[in-house]
Amino acid sequence: MRGRARAASSLAALCAVSLGCATALKEPRPLGDLAGLGPGNAPPADPVEIATLVSGAEALFAERDVDKAKTAVLMFLRAASADKAPIEALLGAVRAQVWLTDHETDPRARVQAAMAAVEAAQWCGRLAPLDPECDYWLGAALGVQARERPSTGLSALPKIEELFRRSAQALPTLDEAGPERALALLYVRAPGWPTGPGDPDLGLRHARTAVELRPDYPPNHLALAEALSATGDAGAGRLEYRRALDLARAMAARGDRDASEWAADAEKGLRDAGVE
């Protein structure tokens, strides 16, 4: 399996969009431009160098530090700009840029990261059109772009829905049942009928599927909690927030670098849900 993707916090923000009219997808810049390769700075040609760049970028991104993630993005993209580069290089760049969109404090930097994530994901889909991970990560990138640039929401929502549906069908266990989790959040948070695809009942079904596929993954319980609350079962929602919190704390104790954020999300969910 490719490196564990960990889109949870990004996807938790997905679809917090209003509807606007700007185009979500434009022609992406050449990969060399995205990688910041100037004249006389050729892409790597040696397969060993490419592999070293990708593994080094993975290691840097694993530290979940903003500056290191930025460096990782450039390394991923430099590797991706090579002929016959592995698709993992582009996927790594998208994952790191989506993560940066959630963790940059400067709004302009968040917008830039989101737009660059969309461009890298577009290249991923062009170079590996049958790869469900490219679909999934383009959906995630469009989601964070819609949050940072609400005017892209209108054109993005149907595309996001299609991408997540396709990846759910092709590889439902990807990113710990990420496509099902993402669909759950899409249907719970998107504007409802007839304005948008929002449908909390449908969101609940996808959240249940995500938990069935990967019951030990805290973000799946967070999504189920939110879906239960949105469909009027606040009591069951609180139980799911509690499950997510317990699982996240256990993972944090084992050294998982994302788990403390999930625990914080669960604690907030419990606070918002109020006392039973």
């Binding site: 917090a16 969009v17 209003s18 606007g20 609400p150 998107a190 409802g192 948008g196």
Partner: peptide, 11 residues
């Protein structure tokens, strides 16, 4: 109607 305070703030 759709959106919440945080999501709508940029608009």
């Amino acid at each position: 109607y759709p959106a919440d305070t945080a999501a709508a703030q940029p608009t």
